[in-house]
């Protein structure tokens, strides 16, 4: 910890208002998603607590029937939007982080193997990556999502929707990790500390995981952050298109889809607030990722 506080990295962080603000926004959002149960005034998914009479209450105004008022208004079913956004944020972040985790583990492993072992295995993995790169990742995700739903029995579809979502986004985003890790692995494996490890008879896996992996993780961190923004948007897009999170467990994307039905009838807040939240989240994750990339890139220093 002492080492971290004295590092150039931390120093650069304290000198960049952009990085501090974007990280602050991300941290606040993550915290409010994690503690949604405690922060949210109502539980938006408890049908018993919903009052249809509260439907379409504009933000900060008293409802004309019940006299209740809501910070960000309510949707058609009288659900408090603020609470719905907190819970939606939780779903969006959960899916995003898990998907990035999956993509990262997969990509890093494949990249390490391709870079270190080389030969036909390298060709196979990298051609696979090339092919996948020719399709937009959202298309890949939809494809995987469709196939998975086709394979699942109907009664499990709702239940497994989130898992399938994670899988489909995770599998569509591994390529960047693999490419970067392969590149740095090929540089690292020529270094003499790897030769020294070979001299004492370590096997490939030991060398890859214990020696090379810690040295290629720097750029992975950057890609993970930028991919997180992509994954959150991908999740929102899928949910918006109706192939993502179900209505019973709405993510930000689902809320936006619900909201756009009411945009032209004047209930603008149902769309606007979830959309703003998504924007703020994706933007600050992205800005922080960009800052990380610029700071950790030795060539720009």
């Amino acid at each position: 910890m002492q080492r971290f506080l004295q590092s150039d990295f931390f120093y650069a962080f304290t000198r960049s208002p952009l990085a501090m603000v974007s990280l602050l926004v991300v941290v606040l959002m993550v915290l409010s998603a994690v503690f949604a149960n405690f922060i949210a005034p109502t539980n938006p998914f408890d049908p018993a607590s919903l009052n249809l009479m509260n439907g379409f209450t504009p933000p900060m105004e008293a409802n004309m029937f019940t006299g209740e008022s809501f910070l960000l208004g309510t949707d058609d079913q009288g659900r408090d939007l603020f609470s719905a956004i907190l819970f939606g944020l939780r779903v969006s972040l959960f899916v995003g982080i898990m998907a990035v985790g999956l993509a990262m583990v997969l990509g890093v492993l494949l990249g390490l193997i391709a870079g270190y072992v080389g030969g036909w295995l390298d060709t196979l993995i990298m051609r696979l990556a090339d092919i996948q790169m020719t399709f937009p990742s959202i298309l890949i995700a939809m494809l995987i999502f469709g196939v998975a739903r086709g394979l699942l029995p109907p009664e499990l579809r709702e239940e497994m929707a989130i898992t399938v979502l994670i899988l489909s986004i995770g599998l569509s985003e591994w390529v960047n990790f693999a490419r970067t890790v392969r590149g740095s692995t090929m540089v690292e494996k020529e270094k003499e500390y790897v030769a020294a490890a070979r001299l004492i008879g370590l096997n490939r896996w030991q060398i890859m995981l214990r020696h090379i992996l810690p040295n290629v993780l720097g750029p992975v961190l950057v890609i993970a952050t930028i991919t997180l923004a992509l994954a959150i948007i991908a999740e929102a897009t899928l949910s918006f298109l109706g192939v993502g999170a179900p209505r019973t467990e709405p993510s930000l994307g689902t809320l936006i889809r619900i909201g756009q039905d009411f945009l032209f009838s004047g209930e603008w807040w149902i769309l606007l607030f979830p959309a703003l939240t998504l924007l703020a989240l994706a933007l600050s994750v992205n800005l922080f990722g960009d800052w990380l990339r610029d700071t950790l890139n030795p060539r720009l220093r």
Binding site: K191, Y193, A197, G201, N215
Partner: peptide
């Protein structure tokens, strides 16, 4: 293997920087 070891040229690349 134990009986044969090596000292390398580059003092920078021959030690794992993360260890």
């Amino acid at each position: 293997r134990r009986r044969i070891q090596m000292v390398f040229q580059s003092p920078y690349a021959s030690l794992n920087p993360r260890w």
